[in-house]
Amino acid sequence: MLRLAVTTSSETFERMRDPLAERGIEVGHLRAKRFALDLSTPPTESFDVGFVYPTREMEGGVVTARHDIPWVNTREDILTSRNKAGVIAALKQSDIPVPKSVYVSNPADESELVETIEAAGLDFPVVLKPNSTTRGAGIAKAHDPDSLSGLVDHLNLVHDYRATGDKSYLVQEWLPNASDYRVMVLDGQVVGAVERRLSDSARADGRWKHNVHRGAEAVGVDLPKRHRALAEVVAAELDIRYLGVDLLESDGRVVVSETNARPTIDDGAKYDDGFFDRLAALIERVAKKS
């Protein structure tokens, strides 16, 4: 039986274990952080292939070298997707619809930032988004130049305090009343999608972030062909085999807001028939190429 290394022990591990076992793939947990490791001692477990490269680059390099395994989503895939501004720039170059965006290498001169925002045609409110964070961390909305200035001051203070590698962020257009979709693309084909919805009470309280980790509900949806085709084009452009593509739809306009090369596997009811068959086939192909 083929052995697949998975470096997370959370929902994705549990949800993929039994379906892949039925298809001849044993899912095992490969610890990739929070350990003390004797590098002179060979690993006690062996794997044929890894699922997604670990979140921490240095630990990922160590476990990859020790186990000598290829990854379905490689280190390069993770770095590409994590760089939100890089993704926006690449998609824009290929005429793929994205939000109007300004990239800020922090700290930047405030007057230069305001001038660039105006030149980009951005109107208030605008959304500030750290370039490399996940789960909606650090995202804020500025309603006017004064609140923008306050948020920039906050970002400067946080970046000075924390030992963070990426100090950059994005300023993006605000899309009112946008529908928020996470589309799963597997080996070039859309295999399912969810709409991330806020409850009426949350909206009444002024909440607007659609991240599931912030309380939104992920509801399985049947996407229009236009949305599916867009997500597949994005995965092809970035050349990532297992990718979550986030789409925002507002006033008939659909844009790619960001991507995730470490998307959580949801419950099976939210995916198309054959999802795990396609996933197993991809894992087997990557393993055979090594």
Rank of each mutant, 00 (worst) to 15 (best):
D205P: 01
K225D: 15
V221T: 11
S201C: 01
G220V: 07
S199M: 06
L198D: 05
G220K: 06
K209N: 05
S199I: 08
E195M: 12
H213M: 10
E217K: 13
G188W: 13
A193E: 01
V219C: 07
V221H: 08
G220R: 07
S201P: 00
N211A: 11
R197C: 09
V221Q: 02
A218S: 11
G215D: 11
A216W: 00
G192Y: 06
A204W: 05
R197G: 04
E217N: 11
S201A: 15
E217P: 01
Q189I: 13
D187R: 08
D187L: 10
R207L: 14
V212S: 10
R214E: 15
D200I: 12
G206M: 08
K209T: 06
V212W: 00
V191M: 15
A216G: 06
R196A: 00
G220E: 06
A218C: 05
W208C: 04
V190H: 10
R214S: 12
V190F: 02
P224M: 06
V190D: 07
G192H: 04
R196W: 03
R203F: 00
R197S: 07
S199Y: 04
N211G: 09
K225P: 02
H213S: 15
V191C: 14
S199V: 11
A193C: 00
V219T: 12
K225Q: 15
G215S: 10
R196D: 02
A202C: 03
V191G: 01
A193P: 04
L223P: 03
W208K: 06
D200Q: 14
A218L: 02
R226T: 14
R226Q: 12
W208Q: 06
V221S: 08
R226H: 09
K225Y: 05
K209V: 08
H210F: 07
D200S: 14
G220T: 05
A216S: 11
G206V: 07
V219K: 08
G215M: 07
S201Y: 10
S199H: 02
R196K: 15
A216K: 03
A216H: 02
Q189T: 15
A202E: 10
W208P: 04
